[in-house]
């Protein structure tokens, strides 16, 4: 029942070509230490599923680990467009499928509910339906309306970062939950990273904040600052200075390679030192 593993053990267990759903939302609580570990290994060809994506998709695209992306959004909010996502879209080096925020949730939920699709009106009248061949229009048998059939999304793995976890895979999320519970339930295998591992007794004190349940979880890794450079509320904010450095580095192949050598290839303990060490991070990012 003890599911504690190291980052390297976990990412080695993910076969090339796997479909991976990633939790978090834009610059919030992305499982970045797991993503860096994936980006640092050899084989990739991953097929990503994200609802509101950001640095995690961009980093995996920039390190050529991705063959396909299902997304509702990929960006860095007001900080800018996602540079590697943008390049991959414009140069058509990767396969993309545009979904929407609710339909990604519905696709995951269809898998959870063990049905082939879920119906919605979302997307009608937009070009998402024109460019996305996965959606089908159908005549609803009850009232005769035209609806969108959102097919089940079936991730092999889900990567989720939480505030606290016990060794059995129960996880506490203290900030916005995003779509992480759906990812955890829909994936065949779910991997949690947690800021801190605590005993089951301590974890139970968090009541409803224990959002991830161990029956859906296969592995747990401890990762202090594991969401950096995205934020992990209420512990620390997104590191916008690092976001700037990332975006600047992504402008040329040379600076991008240098960024990856410094921050991606050596994981995970060295990363925290590379971005300034725990004390500096506390000073910069805690409220």
């Amino acid at each position: 029942m003890n599911k504690l593993l190291r980052h390297t053990e976990v990412v080695e267990a993910i076969p090339a070509g796997s479909t991976i759903a990633i939790g978090g939302s834009s610059l919030s609580r992305k499982p970045m230490s797991l993503v860096r570990a994936l980006a640092a290994r050899g084989a990739g060809d991953f097929r990503l599923i994200v609802d509101v994506g950001g640095p995690e998709v961009d980093l995996l695209l920039g390190t050529r680990k991705v063959s396909r992306v299902v997304y509702a959004f990929v960006g860095f909010e007001i900080m800018g467009l996602a540079p590697n996502f943008r390049r991959a879209r414009e140069q058509q080096t990767t396969e993309f499928e545009e979904w929407t925020e609710f339909t990604v949730m519905a696709g995951l939920d269809a898998t959870v509910k063990n049905v082939p699709f879920l119906p919605t009106h979302a997307g009608l009248g937009t070009d998402v339906l024109t460019v996305n061949p996965s959606f089908r229009l159908f005549q609803d048998p009850i009232e005769g309306e035209t609806l969108v059939a959102v097919p089940a999304l079936k991730p092999d793995f889900a990567l989720i970062h939480v505030n606290l976890a016990d060794p059995f895979g129960n996880g506490v999320i203290l900030g916005d939950g995003h779509v992480d519970v759906l990812c955890a339930k829909a994936a065949r295998h779910t991997i949690l990273s947690a800021e801190r591992i605590v005993s089951p007794e301590e974890l139970q004190r968090y009541g409803r904040d224990v959002q991830i349940h161990r029956i859906h979880v296969d592995a747990v890794v401890e990762a202090a600052w594991g969401a950096h450079f995205t934020g992990c509320a209420p512990y620390y904010r997104a590191d916008l200075a690092h976001v700037q450095a990332y975006l600047a580095a992504a402008r040329t192949p040379e600076t991008w390679d240098a960024y990856c050598a410094r921050y991606v290839t050596d994981v995970p303990a060295d990363y925290i030192q590379a971005v300034g060490g725990p004390e500096e991070l506390v000073g910069r990012l805690e409220v």
């Binding site: 509101v52 997304y71 509702a72 959004f73 990929v74 960006g75 467009l81 996602a82 996502f85 943008r86 879209r89 414009e90 058509q92 545009e98 929407t100 925020e101 609710f102 339909t103 009106h121 979302a122 997307g123 009608l124 009248g125 937009t126 070009d127 998402v128 024109t130 460019v131």
Partner: peptide, 20 residues
């Protein structure tokens, strides 16, 4: 869409809003 001059961010939740 398939060969954009500028790839922006993706529709996010706007399709949900404009159908409800």
């Amino acid at each position: 869409w398939a060969s954009p001059r500028v790839a922006m961010v993706g529709s996010r939740g706007i399709p949900e809003d404009t159908s409800h």
